[in-house]
Lab assay of single mutants.
Amino acid sequence: MTTFKLIINGKTLKGEITIEAVDAAEKEKIFKQYANDNGIDGEWTYDDATKTFTVTE
């Protein structure tokens, strides 16, 4: 398992979430669903070196 981080830079929601997953593709799906469930629609980036997804509205 690898630890992945999501950084949220939303208009109404900001924060960080850290979760373990098998791979980045699995985690991306979970993070995007979390963002969608919380009304966050923005630009996504991924840094493989730090295993960090960022979504910015």
Results as ranks from 00 to 15, higher is better:
G10A: 05
N36E: 12
D41S: 12
G10Y: 14
D37L: 11
E28D: 08
T12R: 07
I19N: 01
Y34E: 01
V22H: 10
K51I: 09
E57V: 14
E26A: 07
T2P: 05
L13G: 09
E20M: 13
E43I: 13
T54P: 00
I19G: 09
T2A: 08
V22C: 12
T45W: 06
T3V: 10
N36C: 14
D47W: 03
I17P: 00
G15W: 15
Y46H: 00
I17Q: 01
E16W: 14
K5S: 06
I19Q: 02
F53D: 01
A24H: 12
G10I: 14
T52E: 01
I7D: 00
A25G: 09
T45I: 05
N36K: 14
K27F: 15
Y34K: 00
F4E: 02
A49C: 11
K11C: 15
E43R: 07
T45G: 03
F53N: 01
E16M: 11
E57G: 08
I7T: 02
E43L: 10
G42M: 06
N38T: 06
L6H: 00
D37A: 11
I17Y: 12
I7Q: 02
T54Q: 03
D23I: 05
M1R: 11
G42R: 04
D48Q: 06
K51C: 12
K51S: 05
W44H: 01
E20K: 11
I8C: 14
G42Y: 11
Y34A: 03
E57M: 14
I40C: 11
K51W: 12
N38K: 10
A24L: 12
D47E: 03
A49E: 07
G42N: 01
M1H: 06
I8W: 11
D48P: 09
I8Y: 09
I8M: 06
I17L: 08
A35T: 06
L6C: 14
F53G: 00
F31K: 00
G15F: 15
V22D: 09
G42W: 15
W44R: 00
A21R: 05
I8E: 00
I17C: 15
F31R: 01
I7C: 12
T18P: 03
T50G: 02
A25M: 08
E43H: 10
Q33S: 06
E20W: 14
A25P: 10
E26F: 09
T56K: 06
L6Y: 10
K29V: 08
I19K: 01
I7M: 04
T3P: 02
K14R: 09
G42L: 09
N38G: 04
G10D: 01
A21N: 11
I7N: 01
D41V: 13
I7L: 03
K29W: 12
G42H: 03
K51V: 06
K5W: 14
D37W: 10
K27H: 13
K5H: 12
E57W: 15
E28S: 06
A49V: 09
T45P: 00
T3W: 12
D41W: 14
N9D: 05
N36G: 07
E26D: 14
D48E: 09
D48G: 03
N9I: 15
E26N: 12
T52Y: 02
T3C: 15
G10E: 02
Q33N: 05
I7G: 00
K5D: 07
K29S: 10
D37V: 08
A21H: 08
K32R: 13
Y34N: 01
G39D: 06
D23P: 07
T56Y: 10
F31Y: 03
F4Y: 13
